[in-house]
Nucleic acid binder design. Structure first.
Lengths: 140, 140
DNA sequence: AATAATTGGTTAGTGTAACGTACTATCTGC
DNA sequence: GCAGATAGTACGTTACACTAACCAATTATT
């Protein structure tokens, strides 16, 4: 139990570090954090607004404005769904895909530098543990 | 190199999971994320506004409003610094300490549940790796 | 077929938060 | 004693998330 105090604290600290890298990358790509998050989620997917809310963990109403701003920036667009005149799917534009890729590269590079010191075997181990924690989180 | 793609992605995913736990706890304690962050940073410390900006990684100007709102909520207060009439230190109120402790407990419990499946040895390993990554981040 | 309930999404209003720029007041070095 | 540097704030802008209320289209009910 006094153990968990340390692991959980480590997770929180680590999370804030990763977030700061993420936000740094956002600033460099002139993209607000929520927009960057949106791009990442839309990569390879084309969900409806409600599903998107679920993926992002925010309310449906928040997604409206988020996608509005993304459209205004030319990063994403709403597409009509044939057969349901209420619904729309959201998808990346070409520019959106481009920004997403560039952004991802930046984040990967920066984080890569941070873990560069760790031995190869630790990388694998860390990845495996993260996967298990993520599974536990998804199951919750 | 194709390796890093996996580790870094794991870090990002993990970070978002931890953040979602953090935000969940915020909602339960009726405290906005930035306020919760502030409480955590103020625990055991009593920095000036500029130092606080550094600790949080935001601009000095942002801290003014942040502390304003914290004061309005009765969580923190500004204290005059004897010998420098410009400066003030920020410190937690009794209620601030109380909320911080309760909040910390919630987060620790939730994260503890997520790592509960992992063997004890993994906890230690994860903590050690996180420490190294954090050190690399601090050095940057 | 008509009505009720559900689902998909938006609107409006509020609170929070971060930024950049410009500003005041105080302190420090020469 | 005056030129900077430093501590903090004010202001205007953008962004984001929430709640509550709403419309429109779809599906279920009888």
């Amino acid at each position: 139990m006094g153990e968990d105090l340390v692991v959980t604290d480590a997770l929180v600290q680590l999370s804030f570090l990763v977030q700061s890298v993420f936000e740094q990358a956002c600033a460099e790509h002139d993209t607000p954090p929520a927009q960057a998050r949106l791009l990442g989620v839309l990569e390879g997917r084309s969900p409806g607004m409600a599903e998107l809310a679920g993926l992002l963990g925010v309310e449906r109403a928040s997604v409206t404005g988020l996608v509005d701003r993304a459209e205004r920036r030319g990063l994403a667009r709403r597409v009509a769904v044939p057969g349901d005149r209420r619904a729309s799917r959201v998808e990346l534009t070409g520019q959106g895909r481009q920004v997403e890729a560039a952004f991802r590269t930046t984040v990967t590079d920066r984080l890569g530098a941070l873990v560069a010191d760790l031995p190869r075997s630790d990388h694998a181990h860390l990845t495996r543990m993260a996967a298990r924690i993520l599974a536990a989180g998804a199951a919750r």
